[in-house]
Design a protein around this nucleic acid. Structure first.
Length: 765
DNA sequence: TAATTAGCAATTTTT
DNA sequence: TTGCTAATTA
């Protein structure tokens, strides 16, 4: 199709788009890959294209499939669309991969070999199911507690690649046992009528490839398939997209290979190249104009990411000015790093910055503690993102388990969760007997309870009776009333009332009623619609929908007071957000880039992308900091300056502390010997930036320093050493003095270890 | 059955 | 150091 044959570009939505954005929005319905840099108006392009396609009559709302990763992004898209289009968006397929798969599988549950009431396991539930499985096959005893988590990773890893147990060859895995357990896990899920997250996708892909009539139905319906954050898709999601599209589908993928930071959970940037190749993409458009950050910030981001190999290639630019330089601060300790940041934030607030326009980013959650402490002491409101979410709380999961059993009594995970919670005298012994019976019958625990005699049977049947009568009593009730009745009859609230630490839990349980009411509004159902009734054959009952919602959207996860608060989060959590002022902390080797990623080139590139994401969050003011010493796992660590700092262009930086010419705190054995290293033992501590305006915060105890000559032990940081048991390694630090002195060695095989110098026998290599 | 203690690991995380 | 889980004890 040539540009002249597809509809002209007049539409009110198109105003204000830059030429590249306009080109992307109005592309013909052919496979297209939009490389959308940070802050380049990605979401706007995506939503405007949908609006334009519909408004110009090229497709109907039902002809569009738009998929994202998070519910938040999906809601954002919906919000923008409804602002642009005066149409009913209800029937539109806009959502997350998992949400849309759920929708598909509910509509075709028979073809997918699932019960209508199938339940979704979140990661917690999945792990519980795996533990139970391992126990049932006698797989648990002396094995370490990591095993279930390992198996979970194993299963999810293969599902993410679209592989069933049968598809795994010995080349894929050395562990035959895991393959068997994977199969048993699948059997168990099937028996109970539950699906995990990966299964939602995999089942959908298999359904579509098996049932060609169904596949063709959806293929002809969805003339346009739009994908957000394409760089984060895993191979299975790629297969899903492939299953839903033909060469005629307007497959419109938007992503940024430089912002791919989820490889650890299966994302594969290679999907971008694969898409380009397999779909013979003729339209590759780069959105490089950035509307977010000042020049210095972008320049630094560009220079940093240029160190990665195999990029698709992209350079952000702005027509805003260069702005302030990036401020860099090397503090003597993590404590002083945070007090520097807090002092700086105080000044920003004075200047008129709103607290919620300020973010502090870190590589790992453990770093937040010190920062929180400083903010707390300074009396600055802050909000930490991360941690338990609403639907993940124990009391909420308990309540949901009751609801799930009302829907699908054969879900043993839910059954076991609440069969004796609150306590009703059903102990481990009774449950064991029940499990044996269920195994004999090949049935669910719920079914088996009818066959169990003796005291155990009576007690368990009492529980089953509770569920049954609950189901009976709540007929015709609205969702909030149903939840309320469940809380009453299950005695959950009564149980927590007896607990003197149960107040918050009760509040949360009451909040669940509110959440149910809010959910009805979201559904657009009348408030008096019965919870277990279906509006039509293709629609889930409010209760079923609510349970899906609870599994697929765990809710908010912020803690902290108030609205206008300084935002604390990991760099991962910051993706997609922007702030006027950003502090990126902990630019230290071993932390950022993280130790576990540093040895592997791919891992290192992902860390670099992470830093790229961090930098590009800032609009006006970016500060980067590091600490020479950091308390980690109860021990003081001496870290080198991150290599990423040295990859930033000097011209964009302003050092607030004296910049060291070398990266190591503890001497230069690493580099070529040079004069001026800090001397060991009796020497003075490094000139700890007392001149940077926060010299009063206290002086850190000087680290046990080693000079170019080395530590008192005769070893030096960076030196290669050998150990009889651990093999070859590199000295990475020292701690303490005299008989307590310890040496840190990073062994090639055994990893990093702290060893007592008085004991350990190391050989210099 | 609850409560205490010991042991142990320790990026990043959405669905 | 912390935070979690499993094991042990009252």
């Amino acid at each position: 199709m040539t540009p002249s044959t597809h509809p002209p570009a007049h539409s009110p939505f198109l105003q204000g788009l830059n030429p590249k954005q306009l080109e992307a929005v109005t592309l013909p319905p052919e496979p297209a890959l939009i490389l959308a840099g940070a802050g380049s108006g990605k979401t706007r392009v995506l939503t405007t294209r949908i609006a334009w396609l519909i408004a110009t009559g090229q497709t109907s709302p039902l002809g569009v499939l738009a998929v994202t990763f998070t519910n938040k992004a999906a809601r954002e898209m919906m919000g923008r669309l409804s602002a642009m289009l005066p149409i009913n968006l209800k029937g539109m397929w806009v959502g997350t991969f998992h949400g849309l798969c759920n929708r598909l599988l509910r509509a075709h549950h028979k073809d997918a070999a699932l019960p209508a009431t199938f339940q979704i396991l979140d990661s917690q539930d999945q792990l519980a199911a795996i533990k139970r499985l391992m126990k049932s096959v006698g797989e648990n005893p002396e094995n370490d507690a990591q095993k279930p988590k390992e198996l979970q990773r194993f299963i999810n890893g293969f599902k993410e690649r679209g592989m069933r147990p049968q598809a795994i060859t010995s080349a894929d895995s050395y562990n035959q046992k895991f393959i068997e357990l994977y199969q048993l896990y699948e059997d168990q899920c099937q028996r109970e009528g539950v699906v995990d997250f990966g299964e939602l996708l995999l089942r959908s892909v298999e359904l579509l490839s098996r049932n060609t009539a169904l596949r063709d139905h959806y293929r002809s319906r969805f003339q346009h398939v739009l994908v957000d954050e394409f760089q984060d898709t895993n191979p299975l999601q790629y297969l899903w997209l492939k299953a839903l599209s033909t060469p005629e589908t307007g497959l419109f993928a938007v992503g940024d290979d430089d912002q791919s930071i989820y490889a650890f959970r299966g994302a594969d940037v290679a999907n971008m190249r694969r898409f380009e190749r397999e779909f013979a993409v003729q339209h590759l458009i780069k959105l490089e104009q950035n509307y977010r950050s000042h020049g210095h910030i972008l320049e630094a981001a560009n220079q940093l990411i240029a160190n990665n190999q195999g990029r698709m290639g992209k350079n952000l630019w702005t027509d805003a000015g260069v702005g302030d330089p990036i401020r860099v601060m090397e503090a003597p300790s993590d404590l002083m790093e945070s007090s520097f940041i807090v002092e700086d934030i105080r000044a920003l607030i004075q200047e008129g910055y709103s607290r919620d326009e300020i973010a502090i980013l870190y590589r790992s959650n453990a770093q937040s503690r010190v920062i929180e402490q400083s903010l707390f002491n300074a009396g600055i409101a802050y909000k930490v993102y991360g941690g338990l979410r609403f639907f993940e709380r124990a009391e909420i999961k308990h309540a949901l388990a009751y609801l799930r059993l009302m829907e699908n009594p054969h879900e043993d995970t839910a059954f076991l969760r609440v069969v004796n919670f609150p306590m009703r005298g059903i102990g481990a012994r009774s449950i064991e007997m029940l499990a044996d019976e269920a195994k004999r019958q090949g049935s669910s625990l719920y079914t088996a309870s009818g066959l169990l005699d003796g005291k155990a049977g009576t007690a368990i049947r009492g529980f089953v009776q509770t569920i049954e009568s609950l189901r009976f009593e709540t007929q015709g009730l609205t969702l909030p009333r149903l939840v309320e009745t469940m809380l009453e009859r299950s005695q959950l609230i009564a149980h927590y009332e007896k607990d003197r630490e149960g107040r918050e839990r009760i509040e949360n349980l009451r909040e669940l009623i509110t959440a149910a009411a809010a959910f009805m509004v979201e559904l657009g159902q009348p408030a008096d619609f019965p919870a277990t009734a279906q509006a039509d054959a293709d629609t889930m009952s409010p209760l079923a929908a609510f349970l899906s919602h609870a599994s697929l959207e765990a809710g908010d996860n912020q803690a902290g007071e108030g609205e206008r608060a300084v935002q604390l989060m990991t760099v991962h959590a910051a993706k997609g957000l922007e702030f006027k002022a950003v502090y990126v902390t902990g630019l230290e080797e071993g932390l950022f880039p993280h130790q576990q990623s540093a040895d592997d080139p791919d891992g290192l590139e992902e860390e670099r992308r992470l830093m790229y994401v961090a930098i590009t969050r800032a609009r006006e003011r970016l500060s980067i900091s590091l600490a020479q010493t950091r308390m980690l796992h109860g021990q003081t660590r001496y870290n080198m300056r991150s290599r990423f700092l040295d990859e930033l262009p000097e011209g964009c930086l302003k050092w607030l502390s004296p910049k060291r010419s070398h990266r190591s705190v503890v001497g230069e054995a690493w580099d070529t010997p040079r004069m001026g290293g800090y001397s060991a033992g009796g020497g003075h501590p490094p000139a700890h930036l007392g001149n940077a305006g926060f010299g009063t915060v206290g002086v850190a105890r000087p680290p046990a320093l080693a000079s170019a000559k080395g530590h008192e032990s005769g070893f030096a940081v960076g030196q290669r050493v050998g150990h009889a048991r651990f093999g070859e390694g590199v000295v990475t630090g020292f701690e303490g003095a005299g008989p307590d002195a310890k040496i840190q060695v990073s062994f090639r095989q055994a990893g990093s270890k702290w060893l007592a110098l008085s004991v350990v026998k190391l050989e210099a290599l």
